[in-house]
């Protein structure tokens, strides 16, 4: 997501002052401060991981190593069901929002048309609207839709995985658009002209030239959408129905009652998954 601009020689020299060992007092203070901030960021995570292996049944102090909590976790159908639901929702939401978002990004980047600014606003709004507002709005909307369906067909529907997925797609689209647009902006359109010049029709131009070159951006958008969906708690809480809960909601419900090492274990696993996704997105970005 963040690209490092090549440093100008001048600022590189100043930055170099650090490695040249000319440590000033302010530089030292800054370094110590930054180390403390990094510790602040990582100590809780490390403790969480450590305490997923403790024997202590409250999971808050170290009383010896055990792997039991993971085994229990894998034998807990509720948790495993929620994990499965989460993966299904994230996968569907990623596929749909990536496709829709990519199309939208193409439209916004490639065309000038009336109402473009309004659409621009509509695309960016989900990023700035607090998630809880979006969640209650979708909840109210789904209730109305269900009422209408009940009145028309007599069928009684309840919130389920589909409602959650729809909500996840609604906020993921915007993020996909942002990421894909960046790679479309960096794309040199003369390559498309060159392809046309060499006899490629618009189908071939898109699949042989445009698509391969913006693919890293699309994958970046997809990974972001996947992570957002995996991590989402608020919309999941409001839109999932009874018996179809997602992992973050399940964790939340358990945590509100008590800390258990089983939660430490599932949290550790979620952590590892997130790290794998960051690593993946970084590897893909490097390749560009």
């Amino acid at each position: 997501m963040i690209k490092t601009a090549p440093a100008t020689t001048a600022s590189a020299r100043i930055r170099g002052a650090f490695s040249e060992g000319r440590l000033t007092w302010s530089g030292l203070a800054l370094t110590v401060f930054s180390i403390l901030v990094y510790l602040f960021l990582y100590v809780p995570i490390v403790i969480l991981v450590i305490f997923s292996f403790t024997r202590d049944e409250f999971g808050v102090r170290w009383t010896g190593f055990t792997f039991d909590w993971y085994i229990r976790l894998f034998n807990n159908p509720r948790m495993m069901g929620a994990a499965w639901n989460t993966l299904v929702v994230a996968t569907v939401s990623t596929i749909v929002s990536t496709i829709i978002g990519t199309l939208l990004a193409m439209a916004m980047e490639r065309y000038r048309f009336r109402g473009r600014n309004a659409i621009e606003g509509l695309i960016y709004l989900p990023i700035v609207v607090p998630e809880i507002v979006m969640a209650v709005a979708l909840l109210a909307f789904s209730a109305i839709i269900f009422d209408v369906i009940r009145m028309v067909t007599g069928e009684v529907l309840r919130r389920n995985l589909a409602t959650v997925t729809i909500g996840h797609i609604a906020f993921s689209i915007s993020f996909v658009v942002v990421v894909v647009r960046t790679s479309l902006k960096n794309f040199d359109r003369r390559l498309e002209e060159a392809a046309a010049d060499l006899g490629a029709d618009s189908w071939n131009i898109f699949w042989r030239i445009t698509f391969p070159l913006i693919l890293p951006g699309i994958i970046g958008g997809a990974l972001l959408a996947f992570t957002l969906s995996l991590d989402d708690f608020i919309i999941s809480l409001f839109l999932s129905g009874p018996g179809t809960s997602l992992l973050p909601v399940e964790v939340y419900n358990r945590v509100r009652r008590a800390i258990t090492p089983e939660i430490n274990a599932i949290s550790t696993l979620m952590l590892i998954l997130s790290m794998a996704l960051v690593a993946l997105s970084q590897v893909l970005q490097r390749r560009r």
Partner: peptide
């Protein structure tokens, strides 16, 4: 093309 427009991939 002036800037060649070679396909980088």
């Amino acid at each position: 093309f002036q800037s060649y427009a070679l396909f980088p991939h």
